[in-house]
Design a protein around this nucleic acid. Structure first.
Length: 275
DNA sequence: GTGGCCCTGTGA
DNA sequence: TCACAGGGCCAC
């Protein structure tokens, strides 16, 4: 699924295309990933105007008029796509929103891990975001080398990659970007978090920001079939140095990139230059 | 902390 | 037929 760069790309596109528009119709084709009944979902969302499109970690927050927020998590294979009226729903279409001005927005998800949930805007922090136990946004001032060092030492026995992926020390970096940031910082993914030196922690902090920033610029990575809201793939995968490069030569030292399993996830690193 | 699990599709 | 795939929650 989309990690932060992909979700942020979609957020920006939605922000540009749907803010100010009114929801003129709602069609529900698959309701199991909603937190309310189909009837309630249609009744609540229909007729409201889109006020803002925000993001916290990998969750999209679509604020509607009247104090309602529609939260969307794309998980592994969820998509939000602008569609034409003539486009028929596919077997993976969960929701279709008609919007004023002739716009249409579709939510689809092959693996059905993604969800769409309604909350009162005022309570979203307490009811949704808070319980997720999220760390700071990577580009917030709150994410510093010091905050990272503190978080790593508080979970010193965890391996660094699963800890970064847990969203606890910083949000937004998933399986791809964690492998990339660790490669750039020259840190092995299976290092215990508590063993990182201050210098390594500083590098990791900088590289998490750098990788995510560059990936946003390139509208994310399309390893398999991710596309943005316009249906276009991202272009950052051409920049991947570790992820998906098992068996290839390391661009930095010429060693062979190795693929292992760590925390149940495919993990790519260079045993020669990542320490 | 680690592994299983929620699902479906794809490629070896 | 089986392992694996951009996530994250929940039970051991």
């Amino acid at each position: 699924m989309p990690e932060l760069p992909e979700v942020e790309t979609i957020r920006r596109q939605l922000s540009k295309e749907i803010v100010g528009r009114r929801v003129s119709s709602v069609d529900v084709f698959f309701a199991k990933r909603l937190n309310v009944s189909t009837k309630k979902f249609i009744g609540e969302v229909s007729g409201r105007r889109v006020r803002d499109v925000r993001r916290r970690a990998k969750v999209l927050l679509i604020d509607l008029s009247g104090g309602l927020t529609m939260a969307v998590h794309l998980k592994m294979t969820g998509r939000l796509l602008f569609t034409k009226k003539a486009d028929a729903p596919t077997k993976h279409t969960h929701l279709v929103f008609g919007l004023s001005g002739g716009r249409r927005l579709m939510f689809e998800d092959v693996r059905k891990f993604g969800w769409v949930r309604l909350f009162e805007t005022a309570t979203i922090e307490d009811s949704l975001i808070g319980p997720m136990g999220l760390g700071p946004e990577p580009f917030d001032d709150a994410f510093t080398p010091e905050s990272l060092a503190k978080c790593l030492s508080s979970r010193g026995n965890s391996r660094i990659k699963p800890l970064i992926m847990s969203q606890r020390c910083v949000v937004g970096s998933g399986n791809i970007y964690t492998d990339e940031a660790l490669w750039k910082a020259r840190i092995r993914p299976d290092r215990k978090a508590g063993t990182l030196t201050r210098q390594e922690t500083n590098r990791l902090h900088a590289e998490i920001r750098s990788v995510l920033k560059e990936a946003i610029k390139r509208r994310g990575s399309s390893v398999d079939d991710y596309v943005d809201a316009y249906g276009r793939p991202g272009t950052y995968e051409t920049k991947h140095e570790a992820y998906g490069r098992g068996g290839e030569k390391c661009a930095r030292c010429g060693g062979l990139i190795r693929k292992i399993r760590l925390g149940g996830r495919g993990t790519h690193y260079c045993p020669k230059c990542q320490k």
